[in-house]
Amino acid sequence: MKNEIPDFLLSKPHLQSSVVTDGASRISFLDKGVGDLSRLIKTTYIQWETAEKNGFFQNLDARVKVLFLLLFVIIVSVKQTLLPEVIIAGFVCILAALSRLSLISFYKRVVFFGFIFGFLVALPSALNIVSHGEIVLPVIHLPQSYDFLMYHIPETIGFTRHGLEGVVMLTLRVLNSLALSVLVIYTTPFVQIIKALKSLKVPDLFLMILTLSYKYIFIFVQTVEHIHLAKKAKTIQTNAGEERNWVAGRIAYLFRKTSIRCEEVFDGMTARGFTGDVVLYAHRKMTKKDVIAGSILLVVGVGLLML
């Protein structure tokens, strides 16, 4: 009797969440992308929660925090020795503790990015192929040195003292800058940051576009998740080529959906009195506490600059 079962039901199925290549199972790039989007929402929810806590930084005016961030990232970038960088690292740690942030989750985020962008990217620069000076940690001995084009490969390749000092300095800079940003983000709602930027004379139109974009990102992240789940529920088997085409089609579809949502948003804005003039509400007056805290932070910053 002729087999009338469709081919796709006879073929060996594989999990949709994995792409099997050379016997190795890997998470599909689509699942990974959507997973990244979910993590992004989770991270932002954590930020919103920590920004509502009753801690030292949370109770400060957002203008003080934004100016603190700008001043200190500039200080981090101009200091050329290790001591001020170590002091800044300690100072940020104290501020994070005073703001009742979980130091483990705070440093998990800071160290993860700092390790990749600071340490891993910079480490090869400590080799004597890039840095000059005394080798403190030899890695490979070659039979002879090599020269080609403008490059020189020495007989002994290893890490130099100058190079390692440079890597430590760069890693500390990256870690400190990230810690400062994360401290402010974890203790300040996004709306307050926007208001603080307004007091720094950033144009209202730019701020409105920034605010709307931030909100739309979350709306579209949810839409993408829904599209992906619907596709997973309906698909039995797929391959990387089909997935690429699907992604391109969905991105384009999202753009179209975007323009429809845009019209709805404009209608909503018009219904609430939007006439085309963008005006953001100004900040409240600073309290005595904000002025004192701001002055202390400024004094610390000036002290570090003079160090």
Binding site: L40, L212, S213, Y216, I217, F220, V247, C262, F266
Partner: peptide
């Protein structure tokens, strides 16, 4: 752009953000 199209710029920004989130092998 007219006032009606200003939210459109934000939509384009959100769109660009999502394009950057799709990591392709």
């Amino acid at each position: 752009l007219s006032a009606k199209e200003i939210p459109y710029v934000s939509m384009a920004a959100a769109f660009s953000f999502l394009i950057m989130m799709f990591n392709i092998p």
